[in-house]
Structure formats: C-alpha cells, structure tokens
Simulated scan of single mutants.
Amino acid sequence: MGRLIAAAVALVTAALLLGASPAVAQDGDDPLRVTVTLDGRDITGRTVELDPAKTAELTITATNPGSKAQKVRLVRVSGVALALTFFAYDTTLPFEVPARGRTSRTFPLDVRDLKGQAIGLLPTSVTLLDEERNVLGGVETVADVKGSFWSVYGVFGLAMLVLTALTWATALVALARHRLSPNRFRRALRFLPAGIGTGLVAVVTLSVLRLVPPEVEVEIPIVLGAAAIAMVLGFLTPHPVPDAAPAEQQVGDNTTMDLNTMFVDPGKTPDTTKRWPE
C-alpha cells in the first residue's frame, strides 16, 4: 500500500515538473499578437469570472507581424493546474490574419459544463490553433471558476488529501513500531512522498479557497518546501530501538526456570531422581 501511494504522488509530481508544452507554430512563422476581451473587458493580467450559469461573449483580435498570412482554425480556452488540464473548450472559428494585418472575431463562450469540471482559481489560456493544432498565439489569465466542489478538480484535491493522509499514516506507524531504517537518509526518503503530497494538497486547497492560483511559480516552491520539511522530520526521527531480550527462558507451557538455578556443585553428585517442579 505504501509503495502504491508513493507511486501515485510521484506521478502527479512528475506531471508538475515535466509537463509537456503545446506545439508551436512552424519555424519562420511569427506568432500572432493576440488580445482577448470577455464581455468587453481585457482579460490579460486580471482575474476573470467564469460562471457556468452564464454565457460570456469572447472577442479575439489577432495581429500578424510577419510577412506571411496565418490561417486560424480553432480557438481553445483551457484551464491547467499542476500541469494537468482540467477543462478545455475548442471552438471552430476559421479566419485568416493577413500579413502585417489585423483580424477580430466575436463569439459566445458557452461554459455550462464547467460546473462539473473545476472550481476556484485556475490559470487559463486562450490560444489560436491552425489545422495541425499548432499554437499560433494566445494570452494567459486567471479564471475564477464558479463550479462545484464535486467537480473533477475538487474530487482530485480530495483524492490527493486521502492519499497523503495514508502516506503519513504508514510512515508514522512504521516509526511507532520501530520499523524504519537505521540509516537517517533512508528514514528521510521514507517521509518524502508524504511531504510531496502535503505540498500538492496545499496548492489545490489555496486554489479552491480562491486565495492563490496554482501557477508554476507558486506550485513548485510549495511542493519542494513541503517535501524538504518532511525529509528533515524523517531525518530527525529517533533511531529504531531493538526489542529487549527476554529475561527468562520459557520452559514448557506454564513453567519458567531462572538461569541461576542451573549451577551445580562440582563436589556433589547430582541427584538424577529429582524432577522439575510442575
């Protein structure tokens, strides 16, 4: 069980640290300069509200600084946390941005399904994609999602909480039973998965409570800090104490014999007719 929990925590951490970047436009094509407004307000550098009960109006203005026309096929709105995508909406909106020109498009953004996908603050991007799903340009913002606690993101945080609690429990039970390694560094590594899980739970909790969005510059310090604290605690745990040797030797079911009674006077012949007391 402990290894399974540690593996689950390690997979999430690997996704956080090694999350793949989306494909970019082909070499030689200058990225489009994109401006996005939601209900008439620019989303860049501010927190926008996404309410599943409302339909928002999204306006995209793309400027092409290059010498070749760029053809847009899709507009993608996606929310990411811990290098995992928790919601994504693709809208087919073909248009062309001429060389050194500008094009604007407006369309309704229907996010009714968002209630079951996410909740809280999530880093969100609006990107323009071509026919091969290469990114031509885009902007990033933070969305305040008015979703349900039982959404995919909320259940993910709850599952991480349960796994982290089990990881701490297995490590502490091993400590109480003196089953940890005598080597301090191995004891520190035993507590590492619990620390990483604690950091991940902290990141999700801050996001769901709408305190801090789970951006990379926030996620990594919190996770690494919690992991370091857990390793220090494991390093400082007391050395496992071996079980005390029994003071008496068991003889039969209900009879014990003190080892001192086994002394025999060499000047006397031992009486072999005596029997052990019952």
Rank of each mutant, 00 (worst) to 15 (best):
A56K: 14
W168V: 08
L109I: 12
T170E: 08
A81M: 12
P240W: 10
A247M: 09
S78K: 07
V34G: 03
V223Y: 00
V34C: 03
L166W: 10
L58K: 05
A56E: 07
V203Q: 06
T59W: 06
R73L: 05
V241G: 01
A247I: 09
D30T: 13
F86R: 04
E217T: 10
T55M: 06
D29L: 15
D110V: 15
E278Y: 08
P270D: 09
I119S: 03
R33W: 07
V9K: 02
L161A: 14
T269G: 08
T63H: 14
V208T: 11
N134H: 15
M160V: 03
S125P: 01
T205S: 13
R46E: 08
V201T: 12
P52M: 05
V251S: 06
R3C: 10
Q249P: 00
D243W: 09
L32A: 06
R186A: 12
P270C: 08
R3N: 12
F87C: 00
A227C: 04
D130S: 05
A171S: 11
L180P: 01
L17P: 01
G267L: 15
A230K: 08
E96S: 15
D110T: 14
A8D: 02
M1E: 06
R187C: 01
L50H: 02
R73K: 14
M231T: 05
R46Q: 14
G138R: 05
D144V: 04
M262V: 12
R112M: 04
Y89H: 14
G45E: 03
E49W: 07
P240E: 09
A244Y: 12
R100I: 03
G79N: 00
A165M: 11
G157C: 03
T272F: 13
T269E: 13
S181I: 08
Q249Y: 11
P213Q: 03
G157T: 01
T237W: 07
G19W: 02
E278I: 08
E278Q: 11
G101R: 10
D258G: 10
L38V: 10
W150P: 01
A118S: 13
L163F: 09
T141G: 03
Y89I: 15
T256H: 08
L84T: 09
T261Q: 09
L175T: 08
R133H: 12
D42H: 04
A188G: 09
L17V: 15
S21G: 07
E131N: 07
R46K: 10
V80M: 03
I196E: 00
G45P: 02
L58V: 07
F191V: 08
K274Y: 06
G28Q: 10
A7D: 01
T63S: 14
E219F: 00
R190P: 01
T272P: 02
F235E: 00
K71N: 09
G120E: 05
K71D: 11
A245F: 07
R184W: 06
L32F: 04
A6Y: 06
P214L: 02
Q117T: 05
G252P: 04
T63D: 13
V155P: 00
A230L: 06
I229G: 04
F95Y: 15
P221W: 05
V152S: 01
L38D: 02
T167M: 11
L38H: 04
E215R: 09
F263M: 10
P98W: 13
G147Y: 02
